[in-house]
Every structure is written in structure tokens, then in C-alpha cells.
Computed example of a mutant assay.
Amino acid sequence: MLRKIDCVLVRVPDLTAAADFYTGVFGLRPLWRDASSVGMGMPDTDAEVVLHTMDLPADRSVHYLVDNVPDAVRTCQSAGCVVREPPFEIAIGLCAVVQDPFGNVVCLLDMSKGPRAS
């Protein structure tokens, strides 16, 4: 039987540096590690971001729900991220796109306008 696993693969050149970065900036926690990857747990969920050095396509992006997009963008910038798209309005709040120091795109969004109506 199949079961759902929430996982996103993120290619990085250095596992230790990337794990430290994703722990410090995004609050992820290391769950497991092998020679080519580190599983990083997301708070309040069983979803994982798997940092890896394998030769897989790099066109993945991670989406983080944050409390406040402008604050999150400032935190990311101070940690070495480049802002690719500054905060812009979306139906539920704000969104921004940053690039981490390893070249990965990270989308930040908040629900400052509240969830979508059913």
C-alpha cells in the first residue's frame, strides 16, 4: 500500500553548510543523513526537505508559509539570500521569491488576508 510522503528535493553543493543554513534561516531540523543527502524536518508537520548532492534536476522550488513575508525576506537577505521577486500581493496575503546561497529558489508566502473562502 502506498502512503503519502511530503518531500521536496533541493540540490546543494555542501550538505553541512546547507543543513546549517536551512536550520538557522528556515527553522528546519535534521532528521537523518547519509553520504549524499540530509533529511530536514519542517516544524509542525511530517514534511521533509531533502538536501542532496546527487545529479538531479535543479529546477525545484520550496514554498514556505511564514507569519510575515517582509520580515521573512529581511531575514533571508541577512543570511545571504538574493531577492528575485520582492513581496507582491496574492489572494491570501503576500508572496516573495528569494534565492538561497546554493542557487535554489524559495517562495515565501503569508496568509495576512486570511484563507480562501470555500
Rank of each mutant, 00 (worst) to 15 (best):
V105R: 15
P87G: 00
S37C: 06
P87E: 12
D20V: 13
P70N: 08
F102W: 07
I90D: 02
S36A: 12
Q99H: 03
T45H: 14
P101Y: 03
E48T: 12
S78R: 06
A18W: 06
A117H: 15
E85D: 06
V66G: 09
Y64F: 15
V66C: 04
G114M: 08
P101W: 02
R60V: 02
L109P: 01
D55Q: 03
N68Y: 03
A96P: 10
P70L: 02
I90A: 03
R74G: 00
G39M: 10
F21D: 02
V66W: 11
L109C: 08
R33M: 00
K4C: 13
A96F: 00
L51K: 03
W32G: 15
S112C: 02
V105G: 12
F21G: 01
R60E: 02
V50C: 09
K113D: 11
G41I: 05
V50N: 02
T23K: 15
A18E: 03
A19T: 08
N104R: 07
Y64H: 12
R74D: 00
V10I: 14
M40V: 13
D71A: 03
R60H: 02
V105N: 14
P86M: 05
T45A: 12
D20P: 03
D110V: 05
G41T: 11
A117Y: 06
C81R: 15
C81K: 11
A91K: 00
C81G: 14
A18Q: 08
E85I: 02
A117I: 13
L94S: 04
P57N: 08
S61Y: 13
A91L: 04
I92A: 11
M1S: 09
K4L: 15
V38H: 04
A35W: 06
V8T: 10
F88W: 01
R29P: 01
F88Y: 04
K4A: 14
Q99A: 11
V82K: 13
D46R: 15
C7S: 06
A35Y: 09
V8I: 09
D55Y: 07
G114I: 02
V83R: 13
R116F: 08
A79W: 06
D110H: 07
V82S: 08
K4D: 08
V10M: 14
V12E: 01
R84L: 07
C107T: 11
Y64R: 12
G39Q: 00
D110Q: 03
R3V: 14
P57V: 00
L31E: 07
D110G: 01
D67M: 06
C81N: 09
C7P: 01
C95V: 01
V49E: 10
V10R: 11
V10D: 01
S37V: 08
S78Q: 02
L28V: 12
G24K: 15
M54P: 04
V38T: 13
N104Y: 03
M111Q: 13
M40E: 04
G41P: 08
L108D: 02
L9N: 05
V98I: 10
R74T: 00
L56H: 06
E85Q: 10
A96K: 07
D59F: 07
L108G: 05
V73L: 00
V97R: 14
G39S: 08
S112Y: 03
C76V: 12
P115S: 14
